[in-house]
Design a protein around this nucleic acid. Structure first.
Length: 898
RNA sequence: GCCCGCUUAGCUCAGUUGGUAGAGCGCACGCCUCACACGCGUGAAGUCGAAGGUUCGAGUCCUUCAGCGGGCACCA
């Protein structure tokens, strides 16, 4: 068999995915066991405009590991993919294209034509991320792929809206909302980000009081809004102003008479203690306006320009121009007291970073406070969902649910779910599942549908149920809901995670998912968040190209929930690991004649060689640790267990220990058995690795002699053989053999000590040494005797003499092993006595230090009395062993010094 | 202002019931040893952010502080 020396990931990556997909391996229907347990995950739908970034790759890897693991465990497994229509982003993308290619705006071509364009765009460019997911090896069920604007999901959205409206939780009303003047739409509070403004200014403006010479000074960061002031507020307890409450102010520039009102909201210690009130353009002022029944004058329009109500002088000025002009006017009038430097934070659009304008307008809202009760109850009573890591996310989630406010649902966009509300000519509202229903309700055909669409997160909130068929009671919904885990990033816990919980509990009467796995954030190597605008993102596709998908995946899996700085060297390390796997398999395959997976480990374990019993014992422990770790979402631990089992136990020791048997020139039963065993262990390791490294494991598994449907999990027994449907190994406790492990451990220690001597004494690698081993303990001696040939091979010894005690030549390098065995390497003419003495002294020093520490601990009465007896005993044993070894080293050293 | 997290070897990170500090990379030395130089062997390297406390015993529990990073509230 021709097998290249180095693993080329491309070959495997190009072949297997298409075959898996075509064979239907990803769909739950592949599972033929009617009683199989169910495991399901819905993907956080990436934006249809998006392309893969590291965060996706991380989430997808975690989901795929879980999916593949459970599939191999025989679960009826569904990982459901899909994309989000991403209202604003997509609309803007298409508008840009329209402008670039045809110099048209959406208004030029009209709503209907524009939407056609968006759909065309989606068909043409929307498949990018799906292609990239195939590259990742994501084992999603493409037959169930969904898009948030699909017919079924659209129906779900309308159903959601209508039911909430009927319940009175959705309402239409005037409110002060976040308006993005660039995107020309309302935004929910969650889509707004606060940014510190370091070079901010605080303007102190003086307002004259009518019928008095006094002036009240107010401080503001937005002087232009004074044109819309309808009051000045002071704290009722503020003695400076108490006599002014009820007085009238003559508002400069506009000459409006406005009252001074008293309101607890005002902090007397801030600014001047007097606040200008602009109810139409500030959240707090709006609340005060409602409390005091103040007029609400809109002086800024949706373009962030001053309106007619701002006065002829200011009308149509940009808000910032207006600001300057207002300040200049105040200065002219001698009413500008001062301008102070002031740091504060401004709200900006989360998408385009334009400064938000609070605007008073009529919108649709959802009363989330009512909606949040059941998720809170679920957390309090059943502690669900379980967040991984629990800290700090459980608290973040809970705190948010405890302080819910109304959600602005409507968006002044064209691309999205149209609000299912119609108006008759009198302006009456009819909310219905279809226009037809609305007509029936209204008793007229003359209806106009609300032009707005819903916040994209409205449809996202339904994702786990809508993708499974809700509002119909489909089989999928019955089978796969609730889902097992949601894997996502921390920044959408409120926007999405909490809301899915709300809708799931409301409509499907059950939680949307049992667990929530919050992935870590991947930063660049300087600790900066990766972002498009900074251009510091690492493209997963490039990493795939450079190091292979499997290597990237296993690194991502071990990142898991940790915030980490990306560095390629880790991926390189796992690229090397992949190559190690490749070459271990290469070794097995080059020596596979007469051998088959599954053979060799038949019969009584006691008839196997020591190293066979050892590797099987190690394998069981690895299997146990890996499974446990995956189930606890501790992927890092799982990866470590796999890495060290494969590299250290299997490659460094097992293959080396069995090599002589496997590569024996004489064919025969013994050689066949040794070859079959190494193949069998390899095959099990490939299965264990498969969820993390799907491509290389499939590539190699397919090459192994003896693999076939008998290795598949019973639920897939009719399927075409593939490692992805093989049964995930289960730990067999009866094969754990502590005796074999300690026996091999002593051989490993012996080999390591001799290698150390060779290295320290500068013995040329090609040079053979003689080895003398003295083991007073009969059992230990038996172990060394049985492993003599292997030991000789591993330390390059020409011969090895094992006895109860020895009288080694003086010119020998020596070491004392745990348990009191001793080893000597005669080095006639080669030994550097001074160096050997130093080596031994160092060794003794280390032991003595340890002994001193142990003695100290054991002579502490408190310790002996209070620590558990077995702990004390353990330390005594250790001390005894060390004392003996120290003595022996001392003797050796003495003999040396003569 | 309130709440939370992080601080362990030069770098990136593990360390889950408190009981001899770990990995990978990097570094040093020696090796193309018949699976693998994407490799093999050997080695050096940490007062576990600081100070207290609880305990026979603390990287691990408690308190305070410092640096970094989150979340929430406020921001006239």
């Amino acid at each position: 068999m021709e097998i290249p020396k180095a693993y080329d990931p491309k070959l495997a990556e190009e072949q297997h995915y298409a075959r898996w997909e075509a064979q239907g391996f990803f769909a739950p229907e592949i599972n033929r066991d009617p009683h199989a347990p169910v495991y399901s995950i819905v993907i956080p739908p990436p934006n249809v405009t998006g392309s893969l970034h590291m965060g996706h790759a991380l989430q997808h890897t975690v989901m795929d590991v879980l999916t593949r693991y459970h599939r191999m465990r025989g679960y009826r497994t569904l990982w459901l993919p899909g994309t989000d229509h991403a209202g604003i982003s997509t609309q803007i993308q298409v508008e840009k294209q329209l402008r670039r290619d045809e110099n048209l705006t959406r208004h030029d071509i009209g709503r209907e034509k524009f939407l056609e364009r968006v759909w065309q765009w989606k068909e043409k460019y929307g498949g990018e991320i799906q292609r990239q997911m195939r590259r990742e090896g994501a084992s999603v069920d493409w037959s169930r792929e969904r898009f948030t604007m699909d017919e079924g999901l659209t129906r779900a959205v309308r159903e959601f809206f209508v039911r909430m409206y009927e319940k009175g939780w959705i309402y239409r009303g005037e409110g002060l909302i976040n308006w993005c003047p660039k995107d020309q739409t309302a935004l929910s509070d969650l889509e707004v980000e606060k940014v510190e403004k370091k070079d901010g200014k605080l303007y102190y403006l003086q307002y004259p009081i009518k019928g008095s010479d006094r002036r009240v000074t107010v401080a503001t960061t937005r002087p232009e809004t004074m044109l819309g002031d309808t009051a000045v507020a002071v704290n009722p307890t503020d003695e400076r102003y108490i006599d002014l409450v009820g007085a009238t102010i003559l508002l400069p520039l506009v000459n409006r008479e406005i009252p001074i009102v008293a309101d607890d909201f005002v902090d007397p210690t801030f600014g001047t203690g007097a606040v200008k009130v602009t109810p139409a353009h500030d959240q707090n002022d709006h609340a005060m306006g409602l409390r005091h029944n103040l007029p609400m004058i809109k002086v800024i329009d949706s373009q962030a320009r001053m309106s007619a109500d701002a006065g002829a002088e200011f009308e149509s000025l940009d808000r910032y121009e207006a600001r300057e002009k207002v300040v200049a006017k105040f200065e002219e009038l001698g009413l500008l007291e001062k301008i102070a430097d002031y740091e504060f934070s401004i709200s900006q659009c989360g998408r385009c970073r334009t400064v938000i304008e609070p605007l008073l307008s009529v919108q649709w809202f959802l009363k989330q406070s009512a909606f949040g009760e059941r998720p809170l109850e679920l957390m309090r009573e059943r502690h669900e969902p379980r967040f991984v890591p629990e800290n700090p996310y459980e608290k973040v989630y809970t705190n948010w649910l405890e302080g819910l406010y109304d959600w602005t649902l409507s968006r002044q966009l064209w691309w999205g779910h149209r609000i299912p509300a119609w108006y008759d000519e009198a302006g009456n509202i009819f909310v219905a599942r279809s226009e037809e229903d609305a007509r029936k309700l209204a008793g007229t055909d003359k209806l106009t549908q609300d032009p707005d669409v819903l916040d994209t997160w409205f449809s996202s909130a339904l994702w786990p149920i809508s993708t499974l068929g809700w509002p119909d009671e489909t089989d999928d919904l019955k089978t796969f809901y609730p889902t097992d885990v949601l894997v996502t990033a921390r920044d959408i816990i409120f926007l999405w995670v909490a809301r899915m919980m709300m809708t799931g509990l409301e409509f499907a009467n059950d939680k949307a998912f049992k667990d929530v796995f919050i992935t870590g954030t991947i930063f660049d190597k300087h600790g900066q968040r990766m972002s498009k605008s900074k251009g510091n993102g690492v493209d997963p596709l490039e990493v795939f190209d450079k190091y292979g998908v499997d290597a990237t995946r296993i690194v991502l899996a071990s990142i898991g929930t940790t915030d980490t700085r990306w560095n390629d060297s880790q991926v390189e390390a796992y690229r090397n690991f992949a190559n190690k796997i490749w070459n271990a398999a290469r070794f097995c395959l080059l020596n596979s004649e007469g051998a088959e997976v599954g053979k060799g480990f038949a019969g009584d374990a006691q008839t196997w060689t020591l190293h066979d019993r050892w590797i099987m014992s190690r394998l069981q422990k690895a299997v146990r640790d890996v499974s446990r770790s995956i189930e606890a979402y501790e992927f890092h631990a799982a990866v470590q267990a796999l890495y060290h089992f494969f590299w250290d136990d299997f490659c460094d020791w097992y293959i080396e220990l069995t090599k002589a048997d496997v590569t024996a020139t004489e064919p025969g039963e013994a050689r066949d058995a040794a070859r079959s065993r190494v193949l069998t262990v390899l095959e099990q390791a490939l299965r264990l690795l498969h969820p993390f490294m799907p491509f290389i494991t499939e590539e190699l598994w397919q090459k192994l002699p003896g693999v076939g449907s008998q290795l598949l999990h019973a639920a897939y027994k009719d399927a075409v053989p593939t490692v992805m449907l093989a049964a995930y190994p289960q730990s067999r406790e009866e094969l754990i053999d502590e005796r074999a492990e300690s026996d091999i451990a002593s051989i490993i220690e012996l080999v390591s000590r001799v290698r150390n001597i060779r290295s320290e004494m500068n013995i040329k690698p090609g040079e053979q040494v003689r080895l003398l081993v003295a083991a007073p303990d009969r059992a230990a001696r038996a172990v060394f005797e049985s492993g003599a040939q292997q030991i000789a091979r591993l330390v390059r010894a020409s011969d090895i003499l094992i006895s109860e005690s020895f009288d080694a030549p003086r010119a020998s390098a020596r070491a004392v092993l745990a348990g009191g065995a001793e080893v000597a390497v005669p080095l006639e003419g080669l030994i550097d006595f001074a160096k050997e003495r130093e080596r031994l002294r160092n060794e003794r020093e280390k032991l003595e230090k340890e002994a001193t520490r142990l003695e100290g601990q054991l002579s502490n009465q408190n310790f002996v009395e209070r620590a558990p007896a077995e702990k004390v005993e353990e330390l005594r044993q250790r001390l005894a062993d060390i004392a003996q070894r120290t003595r022996m080293l001392g003797q050796t050293l003495e003999a040396f010094s003569e």
